[in-house]
């Protein structure tokens, strides 16, 4: 019988299967841009996780060598108080990573359930959530984050909360859009006919099927939050001195641009590289995870 024949040629492996993961990885590996992104992100993670353990103390001052250019003792030079720039860059990476990952996790943890419910219960919840999201999205991301940070108060916790909250509308909107599309699929109707309760349908049918775009959104949200943290700290609304953050380092560095330009170059270049890395990785993931890309 024709329909009893085995898997058709070129069948699309299911999301989550080992075979699909292997094929995705093969496809990913062959592409130069996502791989560059992966290398940059791996380097950033290494710097943030291992860096502070091997470099010196980021707040120890060496008055014999203030604003010293890069040397064997201080590979990236020292700042105005004689603190080792490399140690501060490594610690700053850890702050950036925390701000990026924690605020994104916060936005996802709050935004995905709201988006799921708003998309699923369109009649009651959606108009309210939709208008709120529209209003907050009308503010530029950084303006919104700066305003929130000013209210919450300057600290790493404040930065994470402000950035997480500022990312929330985008997460809600993306989740909601996915839910609206998935809700129309026959397998959701079939689940209702099976006698499934709404909670079961949301968690086992809707959520797993909108995971792809959300993973991509996360890789976009992390670099946005890294820049956000640097910006808030640069403006004095974020991490406070003496705690090293790339934004705080830039604030100090701008006063000494003419005598010690390396102080501005290191954090500036690293912010750019970390952001670039996550963006390239995210673009690559989007291409690879898009079912229309033929995988």
């Amino acid at each position: 019988m024709a329909d009893q024949m085995a898997v058709s040629v070129g069948a699309v492996p299911a999301p989550g299967s080992a075979e699909r993961r292997r094929r995705l990885w093969r496809r990913f590996r062959r592409r130069p841009m996502p791989m560059t992104g992966l290398v940059l992100v791996a380097g950033f993670l290494l710097l943030a996780l291992v860096g502070p353990l091997v470099t010196g103390d980021p707040v120890t001052q060496d008055y014999a060598a203030t604003l010293a250019p890069p040397s064997a003792a201080h590979p990236m030079g020292t700042d105005d108080l004689g603190r080792d720039a490399l140690a501060r860059i490594a610690s700053g990476a850890r702050i950036s990573l925390q701000a990026g990952v924690l605020s994104t996790l916060l936005a996802m943890a709050a935004g995905i359930p709201i988006g799921l419910l708003a998309g699923f219960y369109r009649r009651w919840l959606d108009p309210v959530v939709g208008r709120l999201v529209d209003v907050t999205l009308a503010f530029p991301f950084l303006v919104f984050a700066v305003g929130l940070a000013a209210i919450i108060g300057p600290s790493l916790t404040g930065v994470v909360l402000a950035l997480g909250f500022a990312q929330l509308p985008a997460v809600i909107r993306i989740t909601r859009g996915e839910v609206l599309a998935i809700k129309e699929m026959d397998y959701v109707s079939a689940a209702i006919a099976d006698g499934a309760a709404d909670g079961h349908i949301l968690l086992r049918y809707v959520l797993p099927n909108c995971a792809g775009p959300l993973i991509v959104q996360a890789t976009v949200a992390i670099p946005t939050a890294i820049i956000g943290e640097a910006t808030l700290s640069f403006l004095g609304l974020g991490v406070q001195p003496p705690t090293p953050s790339w934004g705080v380092m830039l604030t100090v560095a701008q006063q000494y641009l003419d005598v010690a330009p390396w102080l501005a170059i290191w954090p500036g270049v690293l912010i750019a590289l970390a952001t670039l890395g996550f963006n390239l990785l995210g673009d690559g993931l989007r291409d690879v995870l898009d079912p229309r890309s033929g995988l």
């Binding site: 999301p15 699929m185 026959d186 397998y187 109707s189 689940a191 086992r204 049918y205 099927n209």
Partner: peptide, 11 residues
């Protein structure tokens, strides 16, 4: 259902 492709949860 009519469409055998969208009527089964792909996961």
């Amino acid at each position: 259902f009519q469409d055998p492709y969208s009527s089964l949860n792909p996961r």
